[in-house]
């Protein structure tokens, strides 16, 4: 109950911080609509996983669609511990991805210019447009 009280008494979190507002060429607040299927749980495998978002607000850059597809690096890891030797320029304060949650993200596109590696895209058959690369991801209060 104490946790509930603390949660309710917190200031609403807009996700804004000096990283998300300066990194990447696009910055949005968007709702995670769907995480399709399970993440890959393999020790030998670093990968990016594509998730579907509904754009709520564009803070910087240009986004042409109400829905965007964003690839997150090694999504099972908290964002503040996801950067590694291979991909050093990613991060954020989000701890875990949940469908329905709102994120403020700094993005780049096209993904192939920023990430060389396995991209798990379960929308491959139905969506052929650009995939955004998530550089920074912070949670936003609903």
């Amino acid at each position: 109950m104490g946790s509930l009280w603390l949660a309710c008494s917190q200031e609403p979190n807009t996700g804004e911080d000096p990283e998300v507002t300066t990194r990447g060429s696009v910055e949005v607040t968007a709702q995670l609509v769907e995480i399709r299927g399970e993440f890959v749980n393999r020790a030998d495998y670093d990968y990016a996983f594509v998730m579907k978002y509904k754009v709520l607000e564009v803070h910087r850059g240009k986004v042409d669609s109400d829905f965007i597809y964003v690839a997150h690096y090694n999504p099972e890891k908290p964002r503040d511990r996801v950067a590694d030797e291979r991909v050093s320029d990613v991060g954020g304060t989000l701890q875990k991805f949940h469908a329905g949650d709102i994120h403020r993200m700094a993005l780049e596109t096209p993904i192939d210019d920023y990430f060389m590696g396995g991209i798990i895209n379960r929308y491959f058959e139905e969506y052929k447009g650009p995939i955004y690369w998530a550089v920074w991801t912070n949670p936003v209060s609903k």
Binding site: M1, S3, L4, A7, C8, N13, Q95
Partner: peptide, 18 residues
């Protein structure tokens, strides 16, 4: 809960009620 609050995040325990 303390660690969550230090990260300016909603405590995970609140999920139980929310």
């Amino acid at each position: 809960t303390t660690m969550d609050l230090m990260k300016n995040q909603r405590p995970v325990a609140a999920d139980l009620f929310l």
